[in-house]
Amino acid sequence: MTDDHVYLTLAQGDHEAEARWAYGTGFADPLLGVDTALAPDVDGADLSRYCLMLGDDALVLAQRLIEWCTHAPELEEEVALANLGLDLLGQARMLLTRAGQADGSGRTEDDFAYWRGEHEFHNVRLVEVENGDFAHSIARLLLFATARLALYTEVAERAPDQVLRAVAARGAKELAYHQEYAAGWLLRLGDGTAYSAERMQAGLDAVWPLLDELFTAHEAELRLGLDPAELREPVLTELTALIERATLTVPQLPPLARVGGRAGREGVHTEALGRLLAELQAVAREHPGATW
């Protein structure tokens, strides 16, 4: 076999190989082939809003995970954090696409990601705060993945939209790994050295006040028959067990105050989101109307 032959074999189009790639990288339309008709009793505006809430959570946390790239403590963590980011990005793409179908506007994932201002993002504040150190990022991931896994499990069963159910069913498998990954590091850092335990506890303390927002229902989801408040107790029980096993203390801290009763779901964020979006959107906004 000559090298030229090897090269040609490699360089030739091999569409089968696309399947090997991380989800969401191999094709343009994440919901291609899925029946996207709305069920008759579903309010499209509510469904769209709910998809944006979940999609923005996934997108913004993916962006935070991506910021770890080339800065992770070990190469295995580079691979793992990128993998988590890819999963969340894949979920965000499907949810934002669904939002544009549900509200009848036909807006695309990129219309939502690149052309909304920060007050139009509906993610919880937990996902947007800066990464901090590795322990802080792990604490945030642990809280988010535990709560989101519980939520997706419910949504996959009960959501009044088949696309959303399918996205949640797939997402739950991914989130189960995210939770396992975060719990593994919680344990290693919590029960590692005195210094790592201190960092891990500080990380938990920093993000804990942002947990409650994940259980605070928005009226759109209530109208869809989904109430995240029901998840508060089971998620807290699970988190408590994990934190105690890591020889750490469950923070006794009140939820972060809202602003005039509003928080992330209503488009009222921390100062961190604006800067995150400025970076995320810069190139797209420099070239309005361009195709990438």
Binding site: I66, A82, R93, V283, A284
Partner: peptide
């Protein structure tokens, strides 16, 4: 990686992130 956070579409972001992951 310099362009990961600024990739101009979500599809391009996913492709670039998958590539960075492959390199690791």
């Amino acid at each position: 990686g310099n362009w990961l956070t600024r990739a101009p579409s979500l599809r391009r972001k996913a492709i670039l992130l998958a590539k960075a992951q492959d390199e690791a």
